[in-house]
Amino acid sequence: MFGFGVLKGMLVTIQNFFASYFSKDHLTTVQYPEERLSAKERYRNFPFLVYDQAPEDPRCVACDICAKECPPKCITIVRDSDAEGKPLKRPKSFDIDYSICMNCGICEEVCPFDAIFMDHEFELAEYGRFEDLMYHKDRLLKPNDHFKKIRPTDATRIDAKLAAKTQKPAPPVGN
């Protein structure tokens, strides 16, 4: 009957009004700073570096693959060298410009040493546009426990893979 749709609609809205006082389904707002939703495990936004024992000894070997693959070229790596100038398998400096990073996760995909992963941290507001969003090695390095905490499925898989690799005898050199 024409005209009664208005009344039906009014009934729906007033039901929603009263239900908002009694049912959580009818008041879905999350009051963000005080309460927050837990991040999904596969959520990713910015990369970080993993170390196993000490931050001086990261998994990263400064191979520069991630820096070459990075589409917006936000990663800059300088290889460390010893006193005689012989290159070492660790980065002297590892910088990621978070203001350029586009959260694609390609660095994580291509890293052959499982050293770089995408983090769950999203409250990254800073006062400086350039210096403060340039993350150096000290801010990027996080322990493996952190990785285990935020992404347990990936972390256990990768830990198992790394453990298998260390137990296997080194392949014979030559032939």
Partner: peptide, 10 residues
């Protein structure tokens, strides 16, 4: 407040 409650927010 009233319209917010109708739309299931605070």
């Amino acid at each position: 407040k009233f319209v917010g409650r109708i739309q299931n927010r605070f």
